[in-house]
Nucleic acid binder design. Structure first.
Lengths: 385, 385
DNA sequence: AAATTTATGTGTCCGGCATGAACAAAATCC
DNA sequence: GGATTTTGTTCATGCCGGACACATAAATTT
């Protein structure tokens, strides 16, 4: 990927490095710290910051004097700088938030919807209502795979390859869109439990298991941008037919599907989610059959994780959705079955299996991340000065 | 991971880009073409080439005049420049080759060995025998996973976490080592059937199925550098116990293991490979039971590939080892079962399943690639001038 | 055979960028 | 109040790549 490299691009490159450092940092840092962090001189840092300040991308505020030495300034997002809008589009509702450099989010609006693609017009109205000239990019999280970034498929809403270009394209800021599970993983990788982990997996457990492979802080998308359907691998030897068109999918044995089916309910998508939560609660309260169902669930989950770890060798695996509850209730069982599925020589260094820390905000946070990735693109920054 | 970037590093960066372009090109190209390719001026290209010529990394030879215009020079490896030694260490033999910039390989020696780690001393002698001052790096391909790059595990040779640091470390050129299946995949990605494919999978089918995920021309290694044991996922619902310590591994149903077991032989590693080849030949000649065994093999292979494609969304999948024969004999069957295992919405764009074109030289070629990757490291090039 | 066209190499100048050293500024510590 | 520490600022320097003009070598045209 090394693009053409002139000495002007070098400056841009350092500008972007600086902006990314500010964006990725957990706490604001000073100009001198920035210089040390990027390995550049204080003079160079001053020049970079000056330009970014003029371009309304960074702002300097006096820092609390801590110890001796000349007082310095903290680097914070510019109050008139660009912001990203993030949309978490779920099956029955959506949320719009504004996210500034560094990741600080402000929720703007949330609403239910009628489960037709008409919801996009509704969201556009909300964006127009809240939008200002500062909105530079929109990041969109949706359930379901999005082939090539513009054809959305949500089987249980009956959306079969909905063309998004017309729905998202013109008349509002540039948009990036991706799958919610993948974005939740990205959020964990950038700002959550997987921070700093080079090779990791994240799974969102709901009815399906969606997930993503995270390498060096980036979520892998695949050739058609529809990677991540880990739930549709036959990892547990099930014989049932799955809605996806295949038999034996892992997600038939893990998550809401399996819990609900155990109690004779249809694996629908509406009330089933609440039923699954109720089963977890009953298991927690000591109900024997519910406990058994949860046990089976955790075992199947662990087995699949072990199998995937054999192939992909992650350092850590984070879970969201029902996975958080499963770890809380049956963490040991998951690890035990994971271990059994691991090749023997791997068992002394199994992957850590941890609950995600970004929580339900995962897709929204991830959507903001890809929006900011787009804003912080070198050519984009260059055009802004 | 953008490292510090001074204006001198910029020159190095472009030097490396130029060297990589020469290394990766299928055919030698001229200096003017290089300038166009890298997006730099002809004068800059001239300066770069001049320095690289003085550093004995590139050499210019007059080019055949092709059409009109002032005749130019071709960029070729310097006759006194560095070379990489590549070692393909197999269970029963090893091969040593010398590979120059651009990938041209010369086999130097091949020999059988006694299946003890003493073989490394033997290989060191061979390297000393053939080595010159030009040898800058050694790339090593071995069967079995190599944890963290220095602990080698080959279960069926009885090598349990053999420490390589003492065996490879000092007294010869710097060494990089990796798993043979992964290196075969890397070779396909750089110089074979997967050239230019952004997201791809490669599998080497022998007794086990080893493989690698290839992203942007790079083979993924995982957190402990032991990724790629795709054969040890339970993708086909087998109930057998595997040598790896897990039940139901995919590779029990695909490859030499499954073929040999069908005919009552032990899944050993010595003569079994030849028996598997014999079964393939018999199937080709019309033997019914052999044909049935091969059918089952191909079906299980396709099923696993489809499952993996659901999760990883590769554009193409290449196979080596027995996989080449299976494609030749039962390509349709593999694709059919792959399709069945694909989620319905993926079936109109299934991954291409192709035989590798690098062939048996895969591990050796891949070993040369990682050796050259090390040689073409920016700091390394910088030190050489 | 001479002129033209096309593609390439060479030389020079210029602006941009990061470095490093020296100095200035602003706080704390003793 | 002076020493120390940390940071900001200024300036000269070196290097890099781009732009331009010009030279060179062949093929094609006239």
């Amino acid at each position: 990927m090394p693009q053409t490299m002139t000495s002007a691009d070098l400056r841009i490159r350092n500008q972007v490095r600086l902006l990314r450092a500010v964006h990725d940092a957990a706490e604001p840092f000073t100009r001198a710290e920035a210089a040390r962090l990027l390995g550049i001189g204080r003079n160079t840092a001053a020049a970079l910051v000056g330009e970014l300040e003029r371009a309304r991308l960074l702002h300097e505020v006096p820092a609390e004097p801590s110890g001796r030495g000349r007082p310095t300034t903290l680097l914070v997002p510019h109050p008139e700088g660009p912001v990203a809008f993030a949309v978490d589009f779920r099956e029955d509702s959506w949320t719009l938030a504004s996210v500034e450099l560094g990741g600080a989010a402000t929720e703007l609006e949330t609403a239910e919807h009628d489960r037709t693609p008409g919801v996009f017009a509704e969201i556009r109205e909300a964006v127009a209502r809240h939008g200002t000239a500062r909105v530079a990019q929109i990041g969109f999280a949706t359930p379901g795979p999005i082939r090539d970034g513009h054809r959305l498929h949500i089987s249980h809403l009956g959306w079969d390859e909905v063309e998004l270009d017309g729905l998202l394209g013109e008349g509002w800021p540039p948009t990036v869109i991706d799958n919610d599970a993948r974005l939740a993983g990205l959020a964990e990788s950038r700002r959550g439990a997987l921070r700093g982990v080079g090779t990791a997996l994240h799974f969102h457990i709901d009815f399906d298991i969606g997930g993503t492979l995270l390498l060096g802080g980036d979520a892998q998308r695949g050739a058609h941008r529809i990677a991540g359907e880990f739930g549709h691998m036959p990892l547990t030897g099930s014989d049932l037919e799955c809605m996806c068109g295949v038999r034996g999918c892992w997600s038939l044995d893990v998550g809401a599907n399996a819990l609900v089916r155990r109690f004779g309910a249809e694996p629908g998508y509406g009330t089933g989610r609440e039923l699954a939560r109720a089963i977890l609660r009953r298991a927690e309260d000591g109900d024997a059959e519910a406990a058994s169902a949860v046990n089976d669930n955790a075992a199947a989950l662990g087995k699949g994780l072990g199998a995937l770890a054999n192939a992909l060798d992650p350092e850590a695996i984070s879970l969201s959705g029902l996975g958080v509850d499963l770890i809380r209730l049956r963490g040991g069982l998951i690890e035990e079955h994971c271990r059994e599925a691991l090749m023997a020589f791997r068992r002394d260094e199994p992957p850590r299996i941890v609950p995600g820390t970004v929580g339900a905000a995962g897709p929204l946070t991830g959507a903001a991340e890809i929006a900011w990735d787009a804003i912080l693109d070198p050519v984009r920054v260059k055009n802004r000065l």
